[in-house]
Design a protein around this nucleic acid. Sequence first.
DNA 1: CATCACGTCTAGATCGTTCTATAAACTAGC
DNA 2: GCTAGTTTATAGAACGATCTAGACGTGATG
Lengths: 345, 345
Amino acid sequence: MTEQQRRPTLIDVAKAAGVSRALVSIVMRDAPGASEATRDKVLEAARELGYRPDTRARLLRSSRTKLLGLSFSSSQPFHAEIVDAAYAEAAAKGYEVALSAVANGRPETRAIEALLDFGSEALILISPTLSNQSLTRYASHVPVVSLLRENVGDLVDSVSSDDNAGIRMAVGYLAALGHRQIVHVDGGTAISAAQRRAAFHTEMLRHGLKPVTVPGGPSEEDGLRAGQLLQLDMPSAAIAFNDRCALGLMESLRANGLHVPNDVSVLGYDDSQFARLSYVQLSSISQDAPLLAAAAVDRAVDRIEGNQPPAHVIRTPHLVKRKTTARPRQSSLPGDQSRHQPSEG
Amino acid sequence: MTEQQRRPTLIDVAKAAGVSRALVSIVMRDAPGASEATRDKVLEAARELGYRPDTRARLLRSSRTKLLGLSFSSSQPFHAEIVDAAYAEAAAKGYEVALSAVANGRPETRAIEALLDFGSEALILISPTLSNQSLTRYASHVPVVSLLRENVGDLVDSVSSDDNAGIRMAVGYLAALGHRQIVHVDGGTAISAAQRRAAFHTEMLRHGLKPVTVPGGPSEEDGLRAGQLLQLDMPSAAIAFNDRCALGLMESLRANGLHVPNDVSVLGYDDSQFARLSYVQLSSISQDAPLLAAAAVDRAVDRIEGNQPPAHVIRTPHLVKRKTTARPRQSSLPGDQSRHQPSEG
DNA sequence: CATCACGTCTAGATCGTTCTATAAACTAGC
DNA sequence: GCTAGTTTATAGAACGATCTAGACGTGATG
């Protein structure tokens, strides 16, 4: 039985300040057409009444909503980092962000429709799984920015990380350390897994090394399974599809008495919060979520405001060296299963 | 330069069907006042034009928005599980969910204002950090449900998990296994940390055991630090504030050559996705996110529709036994630092 | 036959804004 | 003192829906 008090409107403020509705609107929007004196008077009255403009009404009249729709997957911690950064960048550009999660029983189309209903002026989709055709259809109504997935057609913007460059760095770094037997635990059917797999192949060949790939996936369990497979022919270094996969892989190695990085070097991808944990200290390829998010927001705003044509932005990732990568042992014989001390705390 | 085609409105549909605006509105809302024949005719026209009602306009006129505002923290994976479940429950009740994250540089008030701007009819706040006074102020405008935090005042609803019961289970379980030296790595200033600390104290005494608490926190790093502290006087079992804390703690134990659960049993709290990982298999107290989320949504909808008074719902958590808890060694001497085999993969 | 009730439909007001005219007040120029 | 130009203010029409009140046709009732 709470007393629901009506919130003040433009009319209330106008009455209180002794001016017309329209003038209050002008002042609230910081638009030209009001003198300093009345501006102060109106702002004072608004503050007094605790007036907050009604977004719905504002939206309805002016087609501008200053709202960016962002869809993400609730099960990906990496997405959360992007959400964080997107909020900040959007706020800096004077936009608000509407969030919609892709979850169990809530397909991407549902999430997108919700964003459109809220009045989003542009859509930013993290790793969208829709077909290019579907994306293009949405893009005919509103600018669409695909984040972390490229090749989405000419009418859809994309902001992605250069997977080739990332893998090139990874292979180059490990090779420079002296590793000859480097395997790639791939991402299976995950987005950009194919890209990285191919890049690994060409890059290894370029270094005169044999490109060995074992099936993996985006989760810890996938890394764990891959670790079992590697038992048969243990390499001196491994590049995992992502950090979670790397974690599982390391756990598997540890369970088999191998020490990282003394026996095997492990390199992750994403530089997620897991990688940064003090007891993990995972070397990783950073896609720099904040940068990617900022680029996506910029792209969306540019499209909305400048009416620019769609573009495809590719950012170069960088290597973050931590404690899971090192020079290989003098000779990295597969099958060396001697037990080692636990890592120095 | 995308061709942005205008979306059809009520008028378009009315014109196409040869009826008035109002009648189309009636049909779209499934309200009484239209014959079956015209109903079909209108629906057909709407389908043909791809008409979707404009939420903003609808919102503006009717106060009903069928929207629940949900605020969560982007850095808490446990919150993501709740978001998932909330979507499902809300959809079942015919509501849509508006999401707003509390993130770096985006305080809770900001998140809430955004939700209100979207037209949320009720707010569900996960572990809100605002003062009771602030919560109550919001509650005077719109029903507010506090999730995972109780004692929020009479005007605010709350849905929480029974921390006393959870800790009681934890202590009871470990005591039943034969443990006498049980410590609690607490949650520091985190929400409900005080509650659990107190419960631990009384429960240990009830079992005739000495309640030892060491300072911890909600993250892996906190657990890690707590592990160092325990070095001085190693217990036979530990109850961590949450799963992430437990993970850090276990890592610390492992680094010091101790085996879980052979040397020390570790019990987590939350039963998060981490706990379920095959190589972690953390025993944990489950608060059952889906159930809590459903309860919160139910509460919100009840408040909106039934105009019921605020209520406080408390759900009982349950124990999930996995592989980090076991009977203690025959005599659990502190200082026994002998190295053990790695866990059987 | 007049009245009433009922189901179906519609005109017009309304929600809280923004936007487009246009009026009023003032300044400046001749 | 009249006209033109600029600044400041306002009235009224939008935006796309819902809601209220009432019109219209039909059939039943007194």
